[in-house]
Design a protein around this nucleic acid. Structure first.
Lengths: 198, 198
DNA sequence: CGTCCGCTTGACTCAGATCAAACTTGGTGG
DNA sequence: CCACCAAGTTTGATCTGAGTCAAGCGGACG
């Protein structure tokens, strides 16, 4: 997720928001629950996922420190996915009604949220594009191209390959194999946590 | 795309927006072009797509009459996808700077756009979920479940199956075959343009 | 030192991509 | 009214590549 982090948390003219710590795997909210809070991530990383009938989880998004969670649910009745901590994390929670009130009154804050949602839409569209590709190699290349530095073509990995596999809808085996092939064909170079397109 | 259509076009305190007619396949804007306009669809349907290196198009979104196009690009430098008419269509165009000004001044209009973007985010997440499924049948079922009437389980098709195949990342052959299998297994019933889950 | 987990490779299976062809339907124009 | 065309729909045959199960390696961490 390449969302631009929110410049500043939403001020709601109330007491400072309380910080809530989350252990690895701890659930912040579940799909269908009534939306009462919006969150800004203080530390760590959260997973947004849905569960299939067979119990398997599908990753539909990630959010890291500085970003908000559940903004898209502000106008909905219930959360539309589960949210669980990926590693230890902490969030600041803001009451939904207060946030909505603040947005109504302060168009500057509304603009911040607008910008954030617009970035999310573009990010998600990029993900849809990648997932619409049928083969493994093009998915990886598109994923890397979206993250690599435009001039150097390098990307410093901030996650495991296994989690990348989840993001682009592949099994980790298929990902590793495609990576090996890409490297053999000199389309990419791996050097520790650094990947370079070439 | 199940976006809630915009309740009302953006008022910009200027002259009424001009309507522009588009022929089938006509390009409204291309990726990378500087964003100068935002559009509300008056009639017809538009495709949002990106092109791969090999020239093939990847569908990343659709928008129908009443919806807006390029809202997510309002804050970006350039459009992030191509937009072409799917059949004859017509759009109302609003100048980007005027829209941004209107949003700054009128928080009610900002709220409309916020709601719209939030809906887009949820819609796109649903699409990501579907595309993350590996097999054809679950994709189709998830797609139908998202559109079918909750009580009757029926969906009146407003597009061709071929275009559905594009949306869920399958070839049309794979889609037709999976459909036939689902129908044989009595998981769905097709009756002309009506599909019923069972 | 042992466990956990990410990483990597192998073998096998099968579903979906691909290429091909026929049928249906709707619309156009002679 | 019918010939014709375009596009969606359907089915067949083949093949590739991703999923799956399995196993081994290595580093991090307690």
């Amino acid at each position: 997720m390449t969302d631009s982090p929110l410049a500043s948390p939403y001020r709601t003219d109330g007491p400072a928001p309380r910080e809530r710590a989350l252990a690895d795997g701890e659930v912040l909210f579940r799909i269908g629950e009534t939306v009462t809070e919006m969150y800004v991530i203080a530390r760590g990383r959260l997973r947004l996922e849905r569960h299939l009938a067979d119990g398997r989880a599908v990753l539909i998004g990630r959010a890291v420190a500085g970003e908000t969670v559940a903004e898209a649910s502000l106008f909905a009745h219930g959360y539309h996915c589960d949210c669980v901590a990926e590693g230890p994390a902490a969030v600041l929670s803001y009451r939904r009604d207060r946030v909505l009130g603040a947005l109504r009154q302060d168009s500057r804050q509304a603009a911040v949220l607008l910008r954030h949602l617009a970035a999310q839409v573009q990010d998600l569209r990029g993900r849809v594009e990648i997932l619409s590709l049928h083969a493994a190699a093009p998915r990886i290349l598109a994923y890397l191209a979206a993250r690599a530095d435009p001039v150097t073509g390098a990307w410093q990995m901030d996650r495991t390959w296994k989690s990348v596999a989840e993001e682009i809808g592949l099994t980790h085996e298929a990902l590793y194999r495609a990576l090996a092939r890409l490297e053999r064909d000199r389309l990419i170079v791996r050097d520790g946590g650094l990947v370079r397109l070439s």
